[in-house]
Amino acid sequence: MMSTAAKTLRHLVSMSDLTREHIEEILHRAESLSSQPTLEGKQIALLFYENSTRTYSSFRTAIHRLGGLTCGFAGTAGTSVLKGESLHDTIKMFEEYADAIVLRHPRDGASRWAADVSSVPVINAGDGQNQHPTQTLLDLLAIKRTQGRLTGLKVAMVGDLKYGRTVRSLSQALSLFEDNELFLVSPPSLRLPLDQVERLQERGTRLQHCQRLEDVLSEVDICYMTRIQQERMEDPDEYERVRGFYRLRAKDLVDVKDNLKILHPLPRVDEIAHDVDRTPYAHYFEQAKGGVEARCAVLDLLIGGPL
């Protein structure tokens, strides 16, 4: 029987499309789905206008695990996009080939436009600096698995809070659950934009802005590290001013909570030293593994057929 969440969700474009019930339903499916062929006979178009390692591979793996087939492109080289084809036309073409479209695009809002145009479900796999909802679902899966809950948590979000779409999506999701407190740790030039702060404060989420990770590390349950995104900065000098601003080392983890877990959407550059990998707090590779399960759950919810 189709769940309420499935009935009310046609596309997954933004965390603002999801209620707490949607999130709980998706995480529940992620835990209970194994290799059930719910996408058998279905074709999913993967349209990746930007490079991707984990997101592309995990969507592909998830689709194959559920018995589906894939088409599309990873990078625009050799496609009509380079001849100037619009996103609109590309979506109209692929909706004829596929039962759903997974889209990554460098422009903010591209997935919402694609969803408006498309006659088949669209899943946002990252649109510019805006949203990355399936990354957030796998982040939440990691938090739930390691902390046993999504409420009453102290979460540090560290690094590039200005350009990072994963931070936007995750902070919005955590604001749906009660009693979470977010510590926004960034250089002044990479603070969470005002419109995002406003959105979180409207929901009553407690926020603290700070610059020094060491000031909050002993307090938090989750430390969500992010990479400084050079490719999204218009001014090369801006990157030089903030690169290497945060570098978490194993020796920094001496006075922390036992349940602390360090997460990272990956890829990392130098913000987490490799010696952290060998501590019990490192959880980023296990987190990434959950990407297949979270994406299986989203695909199944949106387009999976009855077994």
Partner: peptide, 22 residues
């Protein structure tokens, strides 16, 4: 892209929100 412009009106200090990029 040739996209119909849509802006939401919302409550708060920032009362306008782009329908697409939020």
């Amino acid at each position: 892209e040739e996209v119909p412009h849509k802006i939401r009106t919302v409550e708060g200090r920032l009362p306008f929100e782009c329908y697409y990029c939020e």
